[in-house]
Design a protein around this nucleic acid. Structure first.
Lengths: 337, 337
DNA sequence: AAAGTTTGTGACAACGTTGTCACAACTGAT
DNA sequence: ATCAGTTGTGACAACGTTGTCACAAACTTT
């Protein structure tokens, strides 16, 4: 591999001067600078990151440790967001993924390997919003948690604003004039569920509606991120038996919305015409394929990735959990004739 | 940061001996080895990858360059597979993602940055199966293409076996006794479409059925990986008007299957009872949420990632395009009463 | 007992960079 | 003409490793 010394020889100067040119030092004669630049181009010289790392004692690499990247379909967007922001700051991303079934030793090893790479910082991304146990070593270097938080450890974290999103989604339905609403809640073991329920209630209160009067029914059971089963059909049947059935339904997940579309189709009902539907997550394969188009609150994964990296690089080490708002994807399904 | 010399001081030996212990050199007295190991633990010593890199002239890092990781929901699995295999071989993964709208200069820069990291190899992953243009610099180091191929450049590549998968899927339907089949083809601009159609025909021929007699209809238009629209409703209506309508439908994508489920529900028909359905892709958010469960050919993303990394690390530099079989996810939808 | 071999250890150089210091050749002020 | 300051350059050390060589001490073989 061609080194700074080869370049120096080719440009007939000392290797130190070449170093100066590379680092944009002003104290180089324009003619020399030109000769050096030319030599760099001619030889295809590339600075050696290992050597730089040794001198400067920083790698300009950020470690990205994740629980099962993209088990959740769009959680890979966190990675994309982080990478984009890292690139904008001249950093590179070193990825290490930890499988679901991997033990704590695997996580510790991952951490160890990243430390050997002398990463300048560390982002830990969760596959879904939850409380996560982390190796205490993480406090040894600037690190940040995304899409999750740690009650056991004080760490800066970034999570989606579930509550606000539910409130906004509900407001959409209220703004269309609906007064009979129901919430098909996601998995009760999920962190998101109580928060989304609270947001649903926030919006109802705001509109002067008694929260208790509006049904909240669980439409999904199982292990979050694992095996989950849905019972939308029976839940809908039950809701419809009511004297004053809901005219609008807030679905706690796009998967629930999908099943609701199917259940409605079987009854000859059309979302967005006979019943208003708003959902969560914006899982593209679903929301992009449903007709009429689904109105859904998109998880801000990409933005969370970006902000996480930004906060890390800005050196914002306050051990706070910051929330990131969802974005509203307006479709046709929340309307009502 | 604690270095090999600090360890040497603590263990009262020379730093060279410490180096020997770290590298598992046998020519070290057991007692000395124990003292050194103890010192390493006590001081929390971690070898400096940069220094090692300089001496050994290899980084043990593999670059992973991708077109929009996980724009396609499960393409992130390629990354997961690659990382897992890299880890199994003691390598780390450096990720660089290139956005869809980024120019060629961005791609070149990404490549340049990875070269500066002295990556030992490079994997380029496409977001969906296609022909891709690459910077010629990629031939400067061991590299491999996943989920795509390059007609312009001779490079080892790995792609999903679309044709075989379609054949297998069709066989499933034939084995259930169906003799009137239809194929709802995906986007005609997609590489996968002609291959899947060919596989459909392979299976028909195998069963002694004239391929031309079975309808192949496009159910999706638009830009692959971009804006796509589906017309499953009208296509189904048209198929059903036939004198001898199909009893089994092969869907070219899970999204098409989703729309088919909806179209059938509106007609009071049940997949897997009134009409058999088999699909492609296994996009979990869809296939995991449909009832009855969807029988689908799963894109072997994870396996492709693994094999790509394996081939790269094994030094298999033959510039061939190797295919990876889909796996069959058996649900209930391909049955028929 | 002499010679040869093995075992355990350390000195030193090198890898490719950058920081510190030194210095010669100019510039402008006295 | 002398001095101080600026500009452009290079010598050298250092970063943390590992490879090469050397060497003393302990073993084998004659």
């Amino acid at each position: 591999m061609v080194s700074i010394k080869d370049v120096a020889r080719h440009a007939e100067t000392s290797f130190k001067t070449v170093s100066r040119v590379i680092n944009g030092d002003q104290r180089v004669h324009p003619a020399t600078r030109e000769r050096v630049s030319e030599a760099i181009r001619a030889l295809g010289y590339r600075p050696h990151s290992g050597a730089r790392m040794m001198r400067s004692n920083q790698s300009r690499i950020i470690g990205f440790l994740s629980d099962r990247v993209t088990t959740q379909p769009h959680s890979g967007d966190i990675l994309r967001g982080a990478q984009q922001m890292a690139d904008a700051h001249g950093r590179l991303l070193m990825l290490f993924n930890i499988d679901a079934d991997a033990g704590d030793d695997h996580r510790r090893r991952a951490f160890e390997l990243l430390m050997e790479q002398r990463v300048d910082g560390l982002i830990y991304a969760c596959d879904y919003h939850r409380d996560v146990e982390l190796p205490t070593e993480m406090q040894q270097l600037p690190s940040l948690l995304v899409n999750g938080f740690s009650t056991a450890m004080a760490l800066p974290a970034l999570v989606p604003d579930e509550r606000l999103a539910a409130q906004q989604a509900t407001r959409l339905l209220l703004a269309e004039g609906h007064r009979r609403l129901a919430f098909l809640a996601p998995n009760s073991r999920s962190i998101a569920t109580p928060l989304r329920t609270a947001g649903f209630h926030d919006a109802l209160l705001e509109a002067g509606i008694a929260p208790e009067s509006m049904p909240v029914v669980t439409a999904c059971e199982g292990v979050p991120g694992g095996e989950e089963t849905y019972q939308v059909e029976s839940v809908l049947a039950q809701l419809m038996r009511d004297d004053t059935p809901p005219t609008a339904i807030l679905c706690g997940q796009d998967r629930i919305a999908l099943q609701l579309y199917l259940a409605l189709a079987r009854r000859g009902l059309h979302p967005g015409r006979d019943l208003a539907v708003v959902s969560f997550d914006d899982q593209q394969p679903i929301s992009g394929a449903l007709t009429p188009s689904l109105t859904t609150m998109a998880l801000p994964h990409f933005e969370m990735g970006r902000q996480a990296m930004k906060r890390l690089l800005d050196g914002d080490a306050r051990c706070e959990t910051v929330t990131v708002p969802f974005s509203t994807v307006l479709g046709q399904s929340h309307r009502h004739e």
